[in-house]
């Protein structure tokens, strides 16, 4: 997944993700520390949900004593199926965590068919 985006200047890693479904919604939680709202891009292309976040590298003016953070941008892709409503996606970025809410299509919810008698 992330490999396709490599080859650009910086390394790309997958953000940590949690996915759950509740109340007719699919909720994604992606951890992207250091990514601000402006450096984040969430888009749907064909059947793919693409999440890309760029972040500033640690200011390296000086000598590194500890270097544990990954010097990389974030990217992750998901394939969406037909049950997801592409027009209704909510994205909230808070404290370096992206919350995406995908709504399921009304049509994919169980529907009762009324049978009429003549």
């Amino acid at each position: 997944m992330a490999k396709e985006l490599e080859g650009k200047n910086r390394r790309v890693v997958s953000p940590v993700a949690d996915i759950c479904e509740a109340e007719g919604k699919v909720i994604l939680r992606l951890e992207m520390p250091g990514v601000s709202k402006d450096n984040l891009e969430v888009k749907i292309e064909n059947d793919e949900l693409i999440i890309e976040g760029k972040r500033e590298p640690t200011d390296s003016k000086g000598r590194f004593i500890l270097r544990e953070r990954r010097n990389a941008d974030f990217a992750r892709r998901y394939t969406l199926d037909d049950t997801i409503d592409r027009e209704k996606v909510d994205a909230v970025m808070k404290n370096g965590v992206l919350h995406l809410t995908l709504h399921l299509k009304e049509a994919s919810k169980p529907k009762k068919i009324e049978v009429k008698s003549k």
């Binding site: 640690t58 000086g62 953070r69």
Partner: peptide, 18 residues
């Protein structure tokens, strides 16, 4: 954690998402 030492200070950067 990233810890960088320069002439004036030590600068610590720590990832704490969420």
């Amino acid at each position: 954690i990233d810890l960088v030492e320069n002439d004036d200070a030590f600068v610590l950067t720590c990832d704490l998402p969420g």
